[in-house]
Design a protein around this nucleic acid. Structure first.
Length: 577
RNA sequence: CGGGCUGUAGCGCAGUUUGGUUAGCGCGCUGCGUUCGGGACGCAGAGGUCCCCGGUUCAAAUCCGGGCAGCCCGACCA
């Protein structure tokens, strides 16, 4: 591509609305432009990178035996009503965009379990057609509460989503492992270090699932990793081991007493009000009202300085639930003499000190409350969100906390969309098994954020001067600069010839044929970040050479003019890194 | 959804407090000339619904009211 013809304008200043270095560079270097909040145009350079990444995704998924198809972005709401997920629209978990148009009400697809399940159900009747995994690369829409970080969280984004269909659980696990391995190969080819972590499944459903996390300072997620045994999990899902401690001692402790705490419904407010050097948030108990999977009210206790984590299927109390249960006083909940089932995190039971707890009446708390003496718990479990320094449940090692971007997320859906009671079951999602019986499909689904990947790559691969693409995702293989070509015919002739020869050999070249100063040409080359820059100039031609500079390492080599094309072609195929 | 900040040329910004000629600056853009291997310089130009609607006033980018958009922070509850 001749740069004089490329739809490209580089910017000298960071755009005012860019909040990360990577995104600022994608805008400055002319890869993307914002159209509206969370909505972007991919200019030709950005589109090239999307195509390069998509090609890798397609190659690896095809190689894993998957088949590409393309489903509509618009789907009739009836499909979502059938599965029951329409009821979740508007929530954070399922922020769907819904459209009333001629012909009825449609949903702009934010994920395609319903569509793919009805499609496959209509085409597959027999176990002989299984296993089957299909995928698509398509634009998705989500009504995000707050789009941010450029391409990282948009309202419209490009995604690769795959769906597997199997005869039973064991076969599903095989398909899942195949997809997981394929995704790992994709990240390897993109040169992005990724960590698969155990995670929560949210509104998608299913049990086993993994997120593919890329460590990054702009990540919106955190995962914990055990340095010793390699266990890795999202903090929301991580199992946390009980801390050391013997539980409350048999020693004499002051009796519990009531203290007035008006207008102090939060832990911070209570601690501030008591202003007792002995009492910080860790000496208070958070008591959280929720419904368990059976719909029964339950109160969960965690230390006041910890974030709580609810088991699958549990649901927090909302305003109307508190209204319906006046005995549970919002902001002043405590375990003493509470007529509701109480469960506690293991760290609560292991602690050997007294607690400050809500008194179950507005404006009052209880001090010096001791487990077993003043209250009992019906069950002990793992109810806290992991944090750095917690112990690994597998090996007892220390967990470290890593900030990361969720680049992909894969799920073992099982029968969630086909037969599981109370799940998002679609009609007729069955096949005839070998024994002649009708059986539901066992499904998996596998999502990979492609436009988000652009943001992740830009964040991972840049320096002060611009982007530094790895060859696998770079928009071009080679960038030719020809300073002085506008007034030195020999330079122009050699550069033109090199461009023509490389292009003929299938090397993808960005040729800066603009009549601009050397400084501008080099600065733009740095900004755009093509892996190899070739400089054809009068200075080198006097010695019969051109210069090759590696954008990432800064290493400079010299090549004889007449051998340059051959050498660059060879280097493109096996980058010397 | 709550709070804060912002909206002026393609991009980055000043001007708004205290209303007053023809609304400025840098980058970018066009033309001519000089220069030119790390974002050159001179001269001459082009480019504006000052976010929108309404109001106050002789006069509004500036004051008032309402709206919209962007960015940031927070988001249940403990």
């Amino acid at each position: 591509m001749r740069m004089s013809r490329l739809l490209l304008r580089t910017l000298r200043d960071d755009p005012a609305d860019a909040d990360t270095a990577g995104h600022a560079l994608l805008v400055r270097a002319g890869y993307v432009r914002r159209v509206a909040s969370g909505i972007y145009t991919f200019l030709p350079l950005g589109t090239k990178v999307l195509h390069k990444a998509s090609a890798i995704v397609r190659e690896e998924l095809d190689r894993a035996g998957m088949q590409e198809l393309l489903m509509p972005a618009l789907s009739p709401i009836e499909l979502w009503e059938q599965s029951g997920r329409a009821k979740k629209f508007g929530s954070d978990a399922l922020p769907a965009m819904v459209l009333d148009v001629r012909g009825g009400r449609f949903v702009l697809g934010l994920t395609h379990e319903e569509v793919v399940t009805s499609t496959v159900s209509a085409e597959v009747d027999s176990y002989r057609q299984l296993p089957l995994t299909v995928y698509q690369i398509q634009t998705k829409f989500r009504d995000e509460a707050r789009p941010r970080f450029g391409l990282l969280r948009g309202r419209e984004f490009l995604m690769c989503d795959a769906y597997s269909f199997d005869v039973d659980k064991a076969a599903m696990v095989v398909s899942y492992d195949v997809a997981k391995a394929a995704y790992l190969r994709i990240f390897e080819r993109l040169e992005l270090p990724v960590t698969p972590v155990e995670a929560l499944s949210g509104a998608i459903g299913g049990d086993v699932n993994h997120e593919f996390m890329v460590a990054s300072p702009i990540g919106e997620d955190h995962f914990v990793r055990c340095e010793k045994c390699g266990y890795a999990a999202n903090v929301e899902a991580a199992a946390v081991g009980p801390p050391h401690g013997d539980g409350p001692g048999a020693d004499e402790r002051p009796a519990r007493r009531r203290v007035a705490t008006p207008d102090a419904p939060t832990i911070e407010a209570v601690v501030a009000l008591l202003s007792d050097p002995e009492i910080d948030a860790s000496r208070t108990l958070k008591a959280i009202a929720a419904f368990d999977e059976g719909g029964e009210p339950v109160v969960v206790l965690v230390p006041g300085d910890r974030e709580a984590k609810l088991p699958r299927g549990w649901r927090l109390f909302e305003d109307e639930d508190f209204a319906a249960h006046p005995e549970l006083v919002r902001g002043y909940l405590g375990p003493v003499d509470l007529g509701v089932r109480v469960v506690a995190d293991a760290s609560v039971v292991a602690a050997d000190h007294a607690w400050v707890v809500g008194a179950n009446e507005p404006g009052a708390h209880l001090k010096d409350v001791v487990l077993a003496r003043d209250f009992d718990v019906h069950d002990v479990g793992d109810y806290v969100v992991a944090r750095a320094g917690d112990r690994c449940t597998r090996c007892g090692g220390d967990l470290e906390l890593v900030r990361a971007v969720e680049a992909a997320h894969i799920f073992q859906l099982g029968l969630t969309y086909t037969a599981a009671p109370g799940a998002f079951v679609m009609e007729g999602a069955t096949f005839t098994a070998e024994d002649g019986t009708e059986q539901p499909f066992w499904m998996g689904c596998y999502g990979f954020g492609l436009s988000r990947l652009l943001a992740v790559l830009a964040e991972a691969f840049h320096d002060d001067h611009g982007l530094c693409w790895p060859p696998s995702s770079a928009p071009y293989d080679v960038h030719i600069c020809a300073p002085g070509s506008g007034r030195t015919p020999a330079v122009r002739d050699v550069a033109d010839a090199l461009y023509a020869e490389l292009t003929a050999r299938g090397v993808d070249v960005l040729y800066d044929d603009r009549d601009v100063s050397a400084g501008v040409s080099f600065a733009d080359a740095d900004l755009v970040g093509v892996p190899l820059r070739v400089t054809v100039g009068a200075r080198g031609l006097e010695r019969g050479i051109v210069e090759v500079r590696d954008r990432t390492t800064g290493e400079v080599d010299e090549l004889a003019v007449d051998a340059a094309a051959t050498a660059l072609h060879a280097r493109r195929d096996s980058p010397a890194r």
